[in-house]
Amino acid sequence: MARNTYQARLEELEKDVLYLSELVAERVRYALNALEDKDERQAEEVIEGDREINRIYLDLEQDCIDLLALQQPVAGDLRFIAASFKIITDLERIGDLATNLAQYALDAENDVYTEVDIRRIGDSALDMVDQAMDAYETEDTDLCRSVAERDDSLDEMCDNASQSIVRDLMSTGDFEGDGDVEPEEFLVDVRRLLLTVRDLERIGDHAVNVAARTLYMIDNDDSLLF
């Protein structure tokens, strides 16, 4: 094996990307816990931890630029670095979305539309992220395609949740909740719930991006990018 330092840096990059993904997944999990349990401590941990995620993301971005500039990678190495460069952006954005979720948990005044199963939607989105990163680590093309296929199911869950809320508001004309809550406050809580659903759906989209870049990395196959 030649270019030992270079090979070691490629392995280090992979390890660091996987570390970032674990950190981001953990933050999403904490945010979901915070939403479910109204756990302010976990919510604050997610918000405060975003700076660390951003720092690691920028470090990894620089590592990719250094490898491109100094090592002139080609072929599989080039695809690995190019894919990793894009994947870390998706991971950083998932981190941002986890921060949003944590902020919603802190801001939520009242439970509204408790029949909307945020935990189930969130676990599904998080599982897609885990699966996409497994595909990246094990270079599993089937897993990449599986993530993309699962996105339809997540989208459907999110659509159903949003539509049921809006349909209920439209059909009942009840913009005042159960009467104990100020109408304005009730609407803010509903809006926050809709944003939660939207952000979870976006986490799924980022998981699909990771899977698409991973498929390109493994097989030079860009079919999931479109």
Binding site: V74, A75, G76, R79
Partner: peptide
């Protein structure tokens, strides 16, 4: 094609510096 996705593993190994 050669520098982004060569067909041959031997070519891949050579151009990425894994041997040669």
């Amino acid at each position: 094609k050669i520098f982004e996705n060569p067909e041959s593993q031997r070519v891949e190994d050579y151009i990425t510096g894994k041997f040669g």
